[in-house]
Simulated scan of single mutants.
Amino acid sequence: MRDFPFAVRAGLAPLGLLMVTGLTPAAAAQAAAPASLSTLARLLLGTVDGRSTGMSGVTRLTGGVASSDAELNTACQELTRAGPFTLDAATRLEGCSVSPGKRVQFRLSLVGVDATREGTVAFMASARPVLERGICRNPDVPVLGQLGITLNYRYAGIGNRPLGEVTITPDRCSAK
């Protein structure tokens, strides 16, 4: 814990620690999202900030892989242009991108976290199972999995140094 900024020690925590405690990040990201974001962009944002959108926008993903990739790519471009989004005192969504095969990659920054500091990367690795469970608690995520969508959350610290990642494959949340 000593590797996280003062905000964490004071009880304000990054996304992962909020999920550990079962709390969802504040609605700050959704509240700060421009009204012009498409329903699919809001759905993707909801998978990061822990808020279910009631599957708004999911019908745009029921076509084939190519059309779904195109729809996801458009939504990620919207999020990236509109962002970054502050999720809590230490976590920021910088943007997302799409790889072929319905794979969405979210870029998250943990503000003030030094990846080179002893124990930080190990802590993030040990938190991975808890993060996965927290992500799977969002009722939108298993439905996205049923549509064959893989969600990848990449965390970076100071200087964009990698801290770790969590990948939710299409079948990951079905057993939760």
Rank of each mutant, 00 (worst) to 15 (best):
L12T: 12
L45N: 04
A70E: 14
I168K: 09
T86M: 08
V98H: 12
A175F: 04
V166T: 14
G54S: 00
T116H: 11
P5F: 05
A29C: 01
S67Y: 03
M55T: 08
V98Q: 10
V58P: 07
K176R: 11
L144R: 06
G159C: 04
D49W: 06
A35H: 14
R133K: 07
S36Y: 05
L93C: 04
L147M: 07
L45I: 01
R117Y: 03
S68L: 01
R137P: 00
A125I: 03
G46L: 02
T86L: 11
D69Y: 03
V8L: 03
L17D: 12
S99E: 13
L18S: 12
G95F: 10
G50D: 11
E118L: 13
R154M: 08
M124C: 01
I135G: 00
S67E: 14
P5H: 02
M124Y: 02
V58N: 01
M55E: 11
A89K: 05
L37S: 01
A82G: 08
L44T: 09
L45D: 02
L43M: 04
V130Q: 11
G46N: 09
R81I: 03
A10H: 04
L93S: 09
Q105L: 13
G54W: 04
D3F: 13
G134N: 10
L110W: 13
G101N: 05
Q146F: 00
L12G: 12
A29I: 06
S174K: 14
N160D: 15
A90S: 15
V141N: 01
P170D: 12
A26L: 12
T74M: 07
G50T: 09
P25G: 02
S126F: 06
N160T: 12
R172F: 05
L87K: 12
R107S: 15
